[in-house]
């Protein structure tokens, strides 16, 4: 087995790793200390290993690390801005959407990606997005509520921000 180089960006940091050509992205990320990326099934079924790949949620257990060459990865560790939680993280806490927290990182990432594409998702769309994330603790109601609440808060903030932007212009 020959090792190879992998160049990628994780949480905004440009990195250069040595990997084995057959390694999965999940294993490499965890080895590099991104413990927020969880191992739940290694078959693409639970979503605990989700990361954003160029802004899109994927299962890091379904991907060879080498496929990530040159790409941008966001893990749950990169979501909060220093000590400041992302509104989606705040919403998960405020709505009791976190129980054991094992599925939470993946859900938060998927939810953020959804709001980028659809700022005003329906409950149906939120559920479809969450369907890639098995949660054995919550029954999904509170995570769904958290995502919808974060979406509406984000829209309201955006609306409030708008006039300011116009003044600046």
């Amino acid at each position: 087995m020959k090792n190879m180089e992998l160049h990628l960006t994780v949480n905004g940091e440009s990195l250069n790793w040595t990997i084995a050509p057959g390694e999965l992205l999940l294993d490499v990320l965890r080895r590099q200390g991104y413990f927020g990326v969880k191992r739940g099934c290694e078959k693409g079924e639970c979503g605990a290993c989700a990361v954003l790949l160029d802004g899109m949620p994927i299962n890091s257990c379904l991907m060879f690390a080498a496929q990530a060459e040159g790409r941008q990865i966001l893990t749950i560790e990169g979501v909060a801005d220093g000590g400041k939680l992302d509104p989606m993280q705040e919403a998960f806490l405020d709505h009791g959407a976190v129980q054991c927290g094992f599925c939470t990182g993946g859900m938060v990432l998927s939810a953020k990606a959804l709001l980028e594409r659809r700022p005003d998702p329906t409950e149906e769309e939120v559920r479809e997005m969450l369907a890639g994330h098995l949660c054995r603790c919550t029954g999904y109601r509170k995570p769904v509520e958290a995502v919808l609440a974060a979406a509406s808060k984000k829209r309201n903030t955006a609306r409030r921000m708008k006039p300011v932007a116009e003044v600046v212009r």
Partner: peptide, 23 residues
């Protein structure tokens, strides 16, 4: 009262918290 989980922040930020999250 509906207080937040006391261990919530480390769970939503992916803090190394679980059994396997150590080298």
């Amino acid at each position: 009262r509906n207080v937040r989980k006391v261990d919530g922040v480390k769970l939503v930020t992916g803090g190394a918290a679980f059994t396997d999250d150590v080298h």
